[in-house]
Simulated scan of single mutants.
Amino acid sequence: MIKTLSPGTTVLCRQTLMNKIADNFKVIKDVLIVELSDISYVCTPADIIKEDKNPPKFILVVEKDSCFQNLLDDGLLAKFYPIILMTGKGYPDINTRSLLVSFSNLYRNIPILVLTDSDPHGFDIMTIYKFGSKELFRESQNLVCSKVHWLGLLPTDIERFNLPSTLIPFNRYDTSKCAELLKRPYMAQEANKDYLYEVEYLKNLGKKAEIENLASIKDNFLMAMYLPIKLKEINIEF
């Protein structure tokens, strides 16, 4: 499902914005047509047919629908305009991954950023976008988006932004999941040493944090401080 709030900015999601459809939407045989002032988008779940005249500065993929909705409500699109915002609502399905690859091919020089909880599941979700899934190994080459960058919430951000009071202790599954992540072949590659460090840090910490924990620092901290800081660190201007 796609919802365009202003020309040049597109929000992407799976079936979470049906109750907010505006007058400029048409759905014909499962194909969504978004009418703007001088250009139309024609989109299917796995394909982007026409390129925007105003390419986004970056694509942000958010792990959870709740965070996705909060970012919309807090004005993320206006603050960082123009961008593309997506969510896979947890572990992404094939259509979500294929859609991201389509955008990656369409906007070859635009960063693709992933925002997840700081826990083993969050890291695992990021790796599915970047490296593919074990379950769909044969299809992975068509579903992998290798230029994905894990923006946060990084395990090292927990100390950096002083979040210890809001942490959730690991359970047995979290510990075993971390151990499994560390054994994956790509974790031994030099190019992924930062990921290795983050997961080892998380395992040694033995605690996890959710994106929403940033609100314990200050209301709207994610939008007002965290995202601007992280984007500037990777040289994205807004």
Rank of each mutant, 00 (worst) to 15 (best):
M1S: 14
M1T: 14
T9Q: 00
T9S: 02
T9M: 00
V11G: 06
C13W: 03
Q15T: 14
Q15K: 15
M18F: 06
N19Q: 14
I21E: 15
D23Q: 13
N24S: 14
K29H: 11
K29E: 13
D30C: 05
D30G: 02
L32R: 12
L32N: 10
L36G: 04
D38E: 12
V42H: 05
I48K: 13
I49P: 04
I49V: 11
K50W: 13
D52F: 01
P55H: 01
P56C: 02
K57C: 04
F58N: 05
I59G: 03
L60W: 05
S66G: 01
F68V: 01
Q69V: 12
D73I: 11
Y81G: 01
G88T: 03
G90H: 02
G90N: 02
P92I: 02
P92D: 10
D93G: 14
T96Y: 01
T96S: 15
T96D: 04
S102Q: 14
S104I: 09
N105I: 07
N105L: 09
Y107G: 12
Y107K: 11
R108E: 04
N109E: 13
I110C: 02
P111S: 11
P111E: 07
I112W: 01
L113H: 07
L113E: 01
L115P: 00
T116Y: 05
S118G: 14
S118P: 07
H121M: 12
G122L: 00
M126W: 09
T127L: 06
I128C: 09
G132W: 01
E135H: 10
L136W: 09
R138E: 08
S140F: 03
S140C: 11
S140W: 05
L143H: 07
W150I: 08
W150P: 01
G152V: 00
E159Q: 08
E159M: 13
R160K: 15
L163M: 11
P164E: 15
S165V: 03
L167D: 05
F170Q: 09
D174W: 09
D174M: 13
T175H: 09
T175G: 00
T175S: 03
S176E: 12
C178T: 12
L181C: 06
L181Q: 07
Y186L: 08
M187P: 10
E190V: 07
E190T: 09
A191F: 01
A191D: 10
N192K: 04
K193F: 12
D194T: 12
V199W: 06
L202E: 00
K203V: 00
K208P: 04
A209I: 03
E210C: 07
E210S: 09
E212L: 08
S216W: 05
I217H: 08
M225P: 00
Y226F: 15
Y226L: 05
Y226T: 05
K230G: 08
I234L: 12
